[in-house]
Amino acid sequence: MAGSDPLATETAGTPAAPDTVKILIAGGFGVGKTTMVGSVSEIAPLRTEEPLTVAGLGVDDLAGIEQKRATTVAMDFGRITISDELVLYLFGTPGQQRFWFMWNDLAVGALGAVVLIDVRRPESSFAAVDFFERRRIPFVVAVNGFEGHHPYPAEDIRESLALPEGIPVVLCDARRRESSRDVLIALLDLLIAAAVE
């Protein structure tokens, strides 16, 4: 009956839930993560805020932030309905460096990630590149132009980030839906290529 094991049974009157997957949009503070989520999401980006002291932290994680017990970490996300049975969520990772530990939770179960880079200050996203490389989470690098302009070719960016050949670098305009969509498609093509190997 309905109450016996809710995880195993979906009862007759209850609408069937779609499968869900997620992709992370990472990068330094202010590189355009929420802009990218918003341009390609079917809903206006939603925000959840989590008080840091209850975010499942070990004591060590709180070192240096004892003075700010009221700190919250905000995360913006959007949604793309692929079909009746499948929904893709896009999560913008918190941009502040000290909130990296949240990414571990966020990263679990993700298909992959987009590391967004501000063409004017690529160094602000170095840490995000490190994070996904170290955890062997598949990612593409998307270079967000300033007002849509791209002064450097993708190869220069690859060199400055010391990226291996296998990681795609895509020039994009995070404000534009088609451009953000193409970045996500580049990630899926990378994942599919790895899957058929």
Partner: peptide, 13 residues
């Protein structure tokens, strides 16, 4: 990797 799942997401995008 779940190729079928990845292809569905790719097609949806």
């Amino acid at each position: 990797p779940d190729l079928d799942l990845l292809q569905k997401v790719r097609e949806g995008l």
